[in-house]
Design a protein around this nucleic acid. Structure first.
Lengths: 218, 218, 218, 218
DNA sequence: AATGAATGAGTTTTCATTCAT
DNA sequence: AATGAATGAAAACTCATTCAT
C-alpha cells in the first residue's frame, strides 16, 4: 500500500531494443503530433516510452533521428486492405460499402489522425520524405484505384462521371472529415465524422451506381 | 571602417503601433506556419517584422500573446464573397463557376494555406479558439450554404442528392486540394490543384445540374 | 467624469529641473529601499516620479547616477536637532526625554527607515560613500555626544558608568528598534517600537540619573 | 593545446543532491547578501557552487526557490547555546560573560552578518517568512530569556531595572554592533565591534550585578 | 540497457539606455 | 523638458545531449 502511493519511482525495466524502440516511436508520434517537433521534448517522449532521457539516447542518437525513424515507419505503405477493388462476385454497392468502412476505420484512428497532423504541421521539416511518400505510396495507390475505376466503367459496372475521370476524388469527403478530426480533436468531432461518413457513402452510391444496368444487365 | 564597408546597422525605423503590430502578425504567421509555434523564435519574427527582439516586446508581452493575437485576427469571418448563392438572373451553372473560382482563389492563397497548416499543427495549443471559430464562423457559414441549397432544391433549380442533403460536402474536394497544398508546399502542388479544381467544377455541374429542367423549364 | 475614469494618460507636466530632480530622488529612495538597487527599475522610479523613463534621463544620465545622487543627499548630516546636549536650565531628566523624543521621531520616520534599509542592503555597492559618511557624519556626531557626556559626568550631572565611558551606546536600544522596523515593515512593528522607546527612556533615566545629587547638590 | 596551457575545462564533478544543494545554498547566501536578490545572478551562484547554470536548475527550479530554500534553512532556530541562563553553581557575572562571549561569537560570524544583511535588504520580498521567523524563533527566545531574568530578579540574583523589566534589551548593544558590521563590511568594523563588546559586558555587569548581595549573601 | 547529474547552446524575457519628434 | 518607439546587453530558464556509474 505504501509502495503504490509513495513510490512512483519506476524500477529499471529492461526491454529488448526492438520493443523499446517501438515504444519510443509510438511515444514520439503522440508527442510530436501534440506539440509539434519544435515544442516536443525528448524528456517527455522518454517518459511516455517508460524510460529516462539518457536511456532513450541508447536507442536513438538524436531527436532528429527519432523524427526520421518515425517518418519512415509511418510513411510506409499500408493500403492493401483499403484498396478500392471489386472482389469476385461482389456488386459495386458492396464494394463501395467495403471501401467506406475500411477506409474510415483506418483513417479515423487516433494514430492515423496524429500522423496526418504531424505531417502537415511539420511539412516544412521533411519535404523530401513527404515527396517520396507521395511518389512511392500515394500516387501508385491512386493510379491503382484509377485503373480499377476505369475497368469498372469500361465494363459498365460504374457510371462514367467527373468522379470516375479523376477517381482520387473518391476519398475527398473522407479527407475533409479527417481535417475535421485534426482540428477539433478529442472526440468532439466524432458525430460529425459519422454523419459525413454516411453522406459520403450515399454520395458514392448515387454517383457510381449505374442505374439498374451493369454487366449483369447485359 | 567607413560606412561603405561595414554598415549594416539598420537605421532605427519608427512606425505607429498599429502598423508595426500588423507587420509583426504578418511575420508571425509566416514564422509559425513554417516552423510551428514551438520551433518559431521571437527573434526571427522580430527580424521579419523589421525590428529588434526587444522592440517586439514593446508591442506584445509574450510569444503566446502574439500567437493569440494572430489567431484572433486570422480566425475572423471573411466569407461573404465566397458565400454560395444564386445571384438574380444567374443560372446554377454560373453560380457553381463563381463559387469554384472565388473559393479556390481564396483558399489557395499562400497566406490561407499557411493559416490552415498552422491551425492543424497547433490545434492542441488553442483548442478553445478553434472551437469558437468553428461555432461562430464555420458553422454559420455552412448553415447559410445549406439554406441556399435547400431553397435551390425546393425551387427545382438543383437536383436533390446526397450532396444537397449535406451540402457542406460541396467544398470537400477543395479542402482535399488544400490538404495537398499544405503537404507538398512550394508550388509543386500547383498543377495538381488546378486539375482538382476543374474536376471539382465538373463534378458539381454534373451533380447539381437539374438535367435541362429547372424553373426555366416550367 | 469620463476623463477621470478612462484617461489615466497623464498630460505632459513640465516642472523645473530642481523640483523634478527632487521628486525623482524621493521616488528612487522608495524604489531602491523596497526592491534593492538591482531589482529596482528605472521605469518604476520614473513612474513614481510622475514622468516617463526617457524623461527621467533628461535629469540623470544613469541609474547609477541616481543612486549616487540619492546617497549624497541622504547621507548629508542632519543631526543638529537630535544632538545630545543640556540646554541652559535643563535637568538631565529633561535632556534625556528630549533626546529620546527627538531621536525616535526622526529615526522612526518611514523615510529614515527606508534609507537605513537601503544602506544596509546595498552596503557592498557604495562602501566608500558609506565610509565617508561614517567618518564625516557619524563619528563627529558621536564625538560631540561623548564630549557632552564627559562634561556632564565631570560636573556631576550624570553618574559615571560603562555607558558614559562609551556614550555611543546611548542610542543602541533605538537602533535595535530601528532594526525591528526595518525587518517587520508596515506598521506591525509600531507597538513594539513604542514599548522599546519607553523602556529605553527608563533605562537612561536609571543609568544616568545621579541619585538626588547633581551640581546643584554640591 | 596541451593541458598545461589552456585547459580550464573543469572536469564534471558529480555530487549527491544533498551535498550539491547545500553548496548551492551556501553560494546563494554569499551572492544574495553581496548583491541583493535582484542583482544576484544565477550564473554566479552556480559558479560559486561549482557547477553550471543548467546544472543548478536540476536542483532548484527557479531563483525564487533558491531564495526560499535559503530562508528556510537560515531562519531555523539555532539559539540553544546562546540562551541566557544560570548554570548550576555559576554566578551572574559568569553567566553574563558566557552570554556575551557566545552571543558575539555567533552573531559576528560573517555568515550570520550576511544573513542579517540579506534579511534586511530583502525584507519586502519575503515578509511572511520573516514574520514566521519572528513568531516561531525570535519571540520564544525572548520569552525564555525574560523568564530566566524574572527568576534571577525574584531570587535576588539580579538587580531589578528597566532592563530586567524588558529583558530583550539585553542584546541591544550587540545588535548595534551587528549593524555596524553590516554597514562597514570587511573587517574594518572589527575593532569597533570588539570595543563595543567589552563596553556591553561592563554595562551588563554594572546593570545586573546586585551589589555584593545575592542569594548567597542572605 | 539504463540512469542521475551535468553541461553548452540556445530561447524567452527584461531592462538600462538612446533616438527622433 | 518630455515622450513613445527602438535597441543591445544581459539574465532567467530550457533542452538536446553527454558522462560516469
Amino acid at each position: 500500500m505504501t509502495a503504490s502511493i509513495q513510490a512512483p519511482k519506476k524500477k529499471r525495466v529492461r526491454l529488448s531494443p526492438e520493443v523499446r524502440k517501438q515504444k519510443i516511436l509510438e511515444a514520439a508520434l503522440l508527442e510530436f503530433s501534440e506539440h509539434g517537433f519544435g515544442a516536443a521534448t525528448v524528456e517527455r517522449i522518454a517518459g511516455r516510452a517508460g524510460l529516462s532521457k539518457a536511456g532513450l539516447y541508447a536507442h536513438f542518437t538524436s531527436k532528429d533521428e527519432i523524427f526520421e525513424a518515425l517518418l519512415t515507419q509511418v510513411l510506409r505503405p499500408r493500403f492493401e486492405a483499403e484498396q478500392w477493388q471489386l472482389l469476385p462476385g461482389e456488386t459495386v454497392r458492396e464494394a463501395i460499402d467495403r471501401f467506406i468502412d475500411l477506409s474510415y476505420e483506418n483513417l479515423m484512428q487516433p494514430r492515423t489522425i496524429a500522423t496526418l497532423r504531424l505531417l502537415i504541421g511539420e511539412s516544412a521539416r521533411a519535404p523530401d520524405a513527404i515527396k517520396r511518400w507521395r511518389d512511392e505510396v500515394i500516387l501508385p495507390y491512386q493510379r491503382a484505384q484509377q485503373a480499377v475505376a476505369d475497368l469498372c466503367v469500361a465494363s459498365g459496372w460504374m457510371r462514367e462521371s467527373a468522379l470516375t475521370r479523376r477517381f482520387e476524388l473518391v476519398g475527398a469527403p473522407m479527407l475533409y472529415a479527417a481535417l475535421y478530426a485534426m482540428l477539433f480533436c478529442e472526440g468532439e468531432a466524432g458525430e460529425e465524422v459519422a454523419a459525413l461518413r454516411e453522406a459520403h457513402r450515399q454520395l458514392l452510391h448515387e454517383l457510381l451506381h449505374n442505374g439498374d444496368a451493369g454487366p449483369a444487365a447485359q
